[in-house]
C-alpha cells in the first residue's frame, strides 16, 4: 500500500505547487481539485488496507464538497472577471490601504 500513499503524496504536493506558484485563479482552483484527488487516493488505499468501507464514504463526502466548492469558486471567478476583467490573483489588491 506504500506505493499508493506515495502516489497520493506526489499528487498532493504537485497540487500544492500549483496553488502556491500560479496566479491564474482558474489554475489555482484546478490545483485544489488535484490536491483533493491526492487525498482521495490515500483514503481509498487505507479503506482497502483495513477492509473498512468508511474511507469510501469519506471520498464521497470529499467529492460532494469539491463539487460545491468548484461551483461557488467559479461563480466568484465569473463575478470577479465581470467587474475587474482579470483572473490574476496578484491584481486583487483593492483591500490594500
Amino acid at each position: 500500500m506504500t506505493k499508493y500513499l506515495l502516489l497520493s503524496a506526489m499528487l498532493f504536493s504537485i497540487g500544492a505547487v500549483g496553488v502556491l506558484s500560479r496566479r491564474n485563479l482558474l489554475v489555482v482552483l484546478m490545483s485544489i481539485e488535484l490536491m483533493l484527488n491526492g487525498v482521495n487516493v490515500a483514503l481509498v488505499a487505507f479503506a482497502r488496507f483495513h477492509q473498512n468501507l468508511d474511507g469510501h464514504v469519506f471520498v464521497m463526502m470529499v467529492m460532494g464538497v469539491a463539487a460545491a466548492e468548484v461551483g461557488v469558486g467559479l461563480a466568484l471567478l465569473i463575478a470577479l472577471f465581470r467587474n475587474r476583467r482579470t483572473v490574476d490573483a496578484g491584481d486583487l489588491t483593492t483591500l490594500k490601504g
Partner: peptide, 24 residues
Amino acid sequence: AILVLFLFVIMLLNLQPRELGQEH
C-alpha cells in the same frame, strides 16, 4: 461535471492572452 464546468467557465470568460495575467 467538475471539469466540464471548468471548461464552460474558461470558454465563457474567453480569456485573451493579455488577460491571463502575469505569473510569479
